[in-house]
Design a protein around this nucleic acid. Structure first.
Lengths: 239, 239
DNA sequence: CCTGCAATTTGCGCCAACGCAAACATGCAG
DNA sequence: CTGCATGTTTGCGTTGGCGCAAATTGCAGG
């Protein structure tokens, strides 16, 4: 629904490159430099890109596929921070000069990425301020997203939170189908629960109730929004 | 406990300036440029710097005092995002090219700030990449903070969340006193509740219980941690 | 010193959602 | 085709902490 990054191109062309959230607006010669110093990486669904606590070695830009960023506490409880799609950055720690990755990033679909080491990224940002400015913009957007989620989690009931999250996911990576808007990557009840701060049981019950009312259709790791407007009503109605 | 920004200096000297999270590492001539284009601002406790939804006009750096950043939903429910102290940035939207402020910022103590318009900030970041890099770093740190709070809010009980938050606040702006570490700005039960996602009633009950055990001492809008180690135990103990 | 507002404390009833448990689907491996 | 692992549904008892209400305390302004 957002950018289109041309399927499975393994060697992305400059044009595609220039539409990336980190590199948009970068002059063409800089893009060529960048491409020269980039490392390509393929991941199969389920593969781990890096783990929480790992030393920060690189920043990655997603060319195709989708990944999940998650945070874990010592006791094993984990939450999902966000899903990362084409054009977006994975491994922001290297952008901000952090020395370890604050979360784990896992591929949820087969994915293609390109990466740069922290040192190179730093040089690039010093030479081409637009890249540093883009980095600030992208981190600012994510910070803002988190503020909103924190507010939702603090003040809203579970049903409404699930509604908001599905709408957000549909917006980020929904795919129009005959039955409605489908979340375009495998999303289990547990995943959804770990995004909105509840249990898979509660998510399951909620989705069942919605399915009864024809608002959604779901299968194993699949959710299709049949009546998005009804979801909006649930998520935003006064009361 | 963190930086010291020399009390009430209204015209901060370059040295102080250079210890700011946004400008550290900036060359001296740039700092002089910056100072020339800055606008000074004083706020009394309770004054509003800007409100959620306002058009983004400026970024501010706190020289002295303390402010509170909050987020409000349509229904009036609000949460506190964070407290902003000396050396920190208020109004990050202008750093990331946003066109409206995503939250409201209010002074909780008499405060001194210096500010730059979005346009000037943009120019500065283009001319001195270190400033853009610092902006990315600072937004990254806040993003990371939010991830941790989101995880706590998702997975931990209220008592533990209150414990973590008090420890965090003490770390950011604690002041050693005879009785223990005092949170160095007015913090009501309601404020604490809006930071950890609960009600002022629950906060009050929790603090009362802790006061009984000698872990904290509190008054009206005051909290002193008498036994920080006991709080750490509550916040981090297994189980 | 008095008055009034705002912050705090505390009691009590209730319910949304959790936790556990058990049955049931679905898709992949062999 | 069959079995297994993983995901999903659903029932049921429990409870943390919310919501309401009322009493109390502390601070500021007159």
């Amino acid at each position: 629904m957002q950018h289109e990054f041309g399927g499975m191109d393994y060697y992305p062309d400059l044009d595609l490159f220039a539409r990336t959230e980190l590199f948009q607006g970068t002059p063409a010669d800089a893009l060529r430099d960048l491409q020269a110093s980039a490392a390509r990486k393929r991941l199969a669904a389920g593969d781990i890109l890096f783990q929480q606590g790992d030393g920060t070695t690189s920043v990655f830009v997603v060319i195709a596929g989708r990944l999940r960023a998650s945070q874990m506490a010592q006791d094993g409880q984990q939450i999902i921070i966000r899903y990362i799609g084409p054009g977006e950055v994975a491994g922001y720690a290297a952008l901000m000069g952090g020395d370890t990755h604050p979360g784990t990033v896992t591929a949820v679909d087969d994915s293609h990425l390109i990466g740069w080491t922290s040192a190179i990224v730093r040089q690039i940002m010093e030479r081409y301020p637009i890249v540093a400015i883009n980095a600030a913009a992208l981190l600012g957007r994510r910070y803002h997203e988190m503020q909103i989620r924190l507010r939702e989690l603090s003040t809203e009931r579970v049903e409404r939170r699930i509604g908001h999250m599905l709408l957000r996911l549909a917006h980020q990576s929904g795919r129009r189908t005959a039955r409605g808007i489908e979340i375009a990557f495998p999303l289990s009840r547990r995943d959804l629960a770990e995004m909105v701060g509840t249990t898979l049981h509660t998510v399951s019950r909620t989705l069942s109730a919605w399915e009864e009312r024809g608002i959604v259709t779901c299968g194993r790791c699949r959710v299709v929004l049949c009546k998005p407007h009804a979801l909006v009503a649930i998520a935003d109605e006064e009361d």
